[in-house]
Design a binder for these strands. Structure first.
Length: 638
RNA sequence: GCUGGCGUAGCUCAAUAGGUAGAGCACCUCACUUGUAAUGAGGAUGUUGCGGGUUCAAUUCCUGUCGCCAGCUCCA
């Protein structure tokens, strides 16, 4: 019999008969490995453990311990769910697609006759458990494209037919488990019995193939883990994450609110939230001034004519608010660039002036679709830490690198990890091919320079230029774009911006539109979840609360409070006639960093006894010492 | 914007086969003078999101609208 050489990840080589399967190889190593292997990687291709190997190859067996294994597991669980749904709802539903995602999987069903609700979950889970327990083999078969089309057509699965019809291949693979068959590339678990722990989590609408022009499908989300223990751990983690939800903490910590009466997506900042925001904005002003930006301010509304000049009226009108007064139409600004353009144009510019960096904490309004609003993370009125850099083309690289460095420094201060993405030209856009190419190259070069990994989103750029996006994650790992760096070769053109070069001729400057935190609202939303409401001292709206033990110390405590406030500590007092434990508890729940306890002892010594929200007590110290202590802890950010 | 779910006191949630609503916390009053996560007693609290319809009667059923939640689409 012909034999082949199988190279294993540790470099060892096994001689196996031609046509041996990964499972055969696993068995030759050990029964335990054979049992644990759910798929295999043969020369970089993921396959089933039952796929025969026909020639010399590198082989890695995949168990549920690896990310690949888990993905296979979840994908197979998605099939199991589709199988269960077909058994329960039969002809009422058609299957479409069901991939594995982070922490689980989903499956989309076309189901006009039955609307899925969480009440269906128990039945579906029960059926899945039965199907898993029956341990049906999951088998792969390869058929021609036409055979597959015919098969799914007979089954009444129109969406599968459409999928196959769009495939440019001669054969497709099918996976069967009992009577259930699905078009799938695989690989899959050897049998349904491998599936042990899963839970349906939610149901939501999703457009077929992600386009709002297509039919709305019903998507069942679920999670799956190799065993119940891990599943429960995940569910607990999810529960913990929900406690960090900035919408919940925002109310509990009395930071902000929304009001139907005011309007959807419009933030109302309460004293503590407004303080938090002010502190962050002050920080921003300092950091920008340090880096050579000039602070500027523009008006809230500008004449509609100007939005026509900029191209916003043409491209962004549906997101804008307009108002008309004295027969004059104005647009409420959705972006801050226009005033910055006017500042640039207010005088003749020399190449010696460049780069010019105009910074504005600019409040903008955008009419976002009602369904996308989400706490502070997606609102209709927000303030950006916006800047427009106007420079010579040869300065572009350096400016973009400078901004990326700025982002890196700021994110380090808040302890954020972030993901970088670059987005290229979309279909609906303005500007020439040459400009787009030059701008895109500049961004890529700057990204490469950071040495950090980044993703490329083709066609995802703004209508006026390509961009780099920096994304942060919320408590539930949903990604939100915060910082963004966008090249714009269009506005300088439209506003006819020029500078006089060394040659005495007029030249066109290039523009970089960039934000570091992005929208302050969104950033604070993510920040609340990041710290779970336990803000570091330098941005804590309330840094300390003075708490007396009995009325006896009230006069002294009042004096301490006044002294600390005069010294710039953000301090509050709680002199209510309550037990100390009660007042400590309240301060604790408000996540106040320090509680300054004053009893007879402290009054006699002229000190306070600080208690940190962690429960740790500091040695008693004089109010002056506490002021210095706070100043020291905050100093590294100022 | 779309699909589905939801809107009851400041917050978290009960209630009703259709008969105009209750509990805890918070709030107010009184007593207690208290040492590091809840002292006790008493009190007040609602146009049941808003409008229209069906009905003798609507918080409950129907409908419109506003808002919220999950996801999709879209974006900081």
């Amino acid at each position: 019999m012909e034999s082949i050489r199988i190279e294993l990840p540790d470099g060892s080589v096994k001689e196996m008969a031609k046509g041996s399967t990964p499972l055969d190889v696993a068995r030759s190593i050990g029964e335990r490995l054979a049992k644990d292997s759910v798929a295999a990687r043969v020369d970089d291709t993921l396959v089933d453990v039952s796929t025969p190997i026909e020639s010399d190859a590198k082989l890695a067996l995949i168990t549920l311990k690896s990310a690949d294994g888990l993905e296979v597991y979840r994908h197979s669980t998605a099939h199991l769910m589709a199988h269960a749904v077909k058994e329960l709802f039969g002809d009422k539903v058609q299957v479409t697609i069901g991939p594995a995602i982070d922490n689980g999987f989903y499956y989309d069903f076309y189901s006009p006759k039955h609307t899925f609700s969480p009440e269906d979950f128990a039945a579906i889970e029960g059926k899945m458990a039965t199907l898993a327990a029956s341990d049906m083999p999951i088998t792969r078969e390869v058929v021609t494209r036409d055979e597959a089309i015919q098969l799914f057509r007979e089954m009444g699965e129109a969406y599968k037919v459409e999928l196959i019809e769009d495939l440019d291949v001669s054969t497709v693979s099918l996976y069967r488990q009992g009577p259930f068959v699905d078009l799938c590339r695989g690989p899959h678990l050897p049998s349904t019995g491998y599936i042990k722990a899963f839970k349906l989590t939610s149901v939501a609408g999703a457009y077929w193939r992600g386009s709002e022009k297509n039919a709305m499908l019903q998507r069942l989300y679920a999670t799956a883990f190799p065993d119940k223990k891990e599943l429960n751990k995940y569910l607990e983690r999810l529960e913990e994450a929900r406690k960090r939800d900035h919408r919940k903490l925002g109310r509990e910590l009395d930071l902000f609110s929304f009001s139907d009466e005011a309007g959807a997506g419009l933030v109302i900042w309460h004293p503590r939230g407004a303080m938090l925001r002010t502190l962050i904005e002050d920080f921003e002003r300092r950091e920008h001034l340090k880096r050579g930006y000039d602070i500027v301010m523009g008006p809230q509304i500008l004449r509609t004519e100007l939005w026509k000049t900029s191209g916003h009226y043409e491209n962004y009108r549906e997101n804008m608010y307009f108002t008309e007064i004295d027969e004059q139409s104005y647009g409420v600004k959705p972006m801050n660039c226009l005033a910055h353009m006017l500042i640039y144009k207010s005088q003749m510019r020399s190449y010696r002036d460049l780069p010019l960096r105009y910074f504005e904490l600019g409040t903008v309004h955008r009419h976002e679709k009602s369904g996308v609003l989400h706490g502070l993370l997606r609102v209709r009125g927000f303030t950006q830490d916006d800047a427009h850099i106007l420079c010579m083309p040869e300065q572009l690289d350096g400016e973009i690198k400078g901004v990326l460095g700025f982002v890196r420094d700021v994110m380090a201060i808040f302890g954020f990890e972030y993901e970088l993405e670059i987005s290229t030209r979309p279909e609906k856009s303005i500007g020439s091919d040459v400009d787009w190419e030059r701008a895109t190259k500049a961004l890529i070069s700057a990204l490469d320079d950071t040495g950090l990994p980044y993703e490329i989103n083709e066609g995802d750029g703004a209508f006026y230029g390509p961009k780099i996006d920096i994304k942060l994650k919320d408590a539930l790992d949903r990604k939100w774009q915060c910082a963004t760096i966008q090249c714009d070769f269009t506005l300088p053109e439209r506003f006819d911006l020029t500078y006089v070069g060394a040659d005495g001729e007029k030249h066109r400057p290039v523009m970089v539109h960039r934000v570091i935190l992005g929208a302050i609202e969104r950033f604070i939303g993510v920040l609340i979840e990041h710290y779970a409401g336990n803000f570091p001292l330098w941005i804590s709206p309330v840094q300390a609360v003075v708490v007396n033990v009995t009325d006896n110390q009230q006069a002294y405590a009042e004096q301490v409070f006044t002294q600390l406030r005069a010294a710039g500590v953000r301090v509050q007092k709680d002199f209510r006639n309550e037990k100390l434990g009660f007042k400590i508890r309240e301060a604790q729940m408000a996540k106040t960093p320090y509680m300054l306890v004053i009893g007879d002892r402290e009054m006699e010594e002229g000190t306070v006894a600080p208690r940190h929200r962690s429960g740790r007590n500091l040695d008693s110290m004089t109010p002056e010492a506490f002021v210095a202590f706070v100043a020291e802890e905050c100093s590294r950010y100022q």
